[in-house]
Each structure stands twice: as structure tokens, then as C-alpha cells.
């Protein structure tokens, strides 16, 4: 029984890992007040989803889908191609967010989200 569960888990190891990564990211995101750490958590979450997506297309022993003699098992190239785009998006998000963090630091003198809210709260309408 338990062996069966373990086997099933192992069979889905990529999915499992991605879910664990996602939860780690989500947890970090919610619990940490440092904006940089929040961004890192966001990236971990993104990576988890990328992993999940790529894993969909993976086939045991598959090769790159280039038509060469002798190559018969391909991995599905579509998810990998998509994730390339996804990574680009993620990078630009992060870059932009970091730029905002710099701006925030300039305005508030801190990158601690609670402190920022406290500072802003004073003159808040």
C-alpha cells in the first residue's frame, strides 16, 4: 500500500517538486516583509510553474524533436518553447519590480513592507 503511494509519488516526482516549490514560494511571499525576498519568492513560484509546464512535455528517454535517423522518442517541444517565453516574462517582471523597489527605497528609505505602510499611513487620506 504505502509502497504503491511512494511509487506513484516517484512517478510524478516533477509535479511533486513543482508543487513543493510553489508552496515554498507562496509561503515566503506571504510571511516575509522584505520586498526583495518577496520578489525572490515570486521567482520561486514562477519557476515551480515552469517546471510543472515543462514536465508535461517530458517523456522518459525522449530526445530533442529533431528528425534524425534512429531517434524515435521525442519530448513534446511545445511546453519548452512556451516556457522560454514564460521565463522572458518572468525576467522582465522581476527587473521592473526591482526598479520599483529602488524607487520605493528612495521615497521611503526602507524596503520593509510593514515600515512602508506605517510611513504612508501617517499622511494617508
Amino acid at each position: 500500500m504505502s509502497v504503491e503511494i511512494l511509487e506513484r509519488l516517484y512517478g510524478n516526482i516533477y509535479y511533486l517538486t513543482s508543487v513543493i516549490l510553489f508552496v515554498i514560494g507562496f509561503h515566503t511571499m506571504l510571511t516575509h516583509r522584505n520586498l526583495i525576498k518577496k520578489l525572490m519568492a515570486l521567482n520561486i513560484m514562477d519557476t515551480a510553474i515552469f517546471l510543472f509546464f515543462v514536465a508535461i512535455g517530458y517523456r522518459e528517454g525522449g530526445q530533442a524533436p529533431i528528425l534524425l535517423p534512429g531517434v524515435e522518442r521525442f519530448v513534446n517541444p511545445v511546453p519548452s518553447a512556451l516556457i522560454l517565453t514564460g521565463i522572458v516574462i518572468s525576467v522582465s517582471f522581476t527587473a521592473f519590480a526591482l526598479a520599483l523597489v529602488v524607487l520605493l527605497h528612495k521615497h521611503y528609505g526602507t524596503i520593509d513592507s510593514d515600515e512602508i505602510i506605517a510611513i504612508r499611513g501617517k499622511k494617508y487620506v
Binding site: 510553489f22 511571499m29 520586498l35 518577496k38 515570486l42 513560484m45 514562477d46 510553474i49 510543472f52 509546464f53 508535461i56 511546453p79 514564460g86 516574462i89 517582471f93 521592473f96 519590480a97 520599483l100 523597489v101 524607487l103 520605493l104 521615497h107 521611503y108 512602508i116 504612508r120
Partner: peptide
């Protein structure tokens, strides 16, 4: 470029990125 707008946009960005993650996951 005001204090408030940068703060608001950062919050929007984080939540929006979370939303994007959810959307991408559902697409997967």
C-alpha cells in the same frame, strides 16, 4: 513618481504577478 503611486503600483505588481502565476498554472 509620487510616494503613494510607487507604493500602490508595487502592490499591484506583486498581486498581478501572483495572478499571472495562477493563470499560467491553469493553462498548464
Amino acid at each position: 513618481g509620487t510616494k503613494e503611486s510607487v507604493e500602490a503600483s508595487f502592490r499591484y505588481l506583486i498581486l498581478s504577478a501572483l495572478g499571472s502565476g495562477g493563470l499560467l498554472f491553469s493553462i498548464a
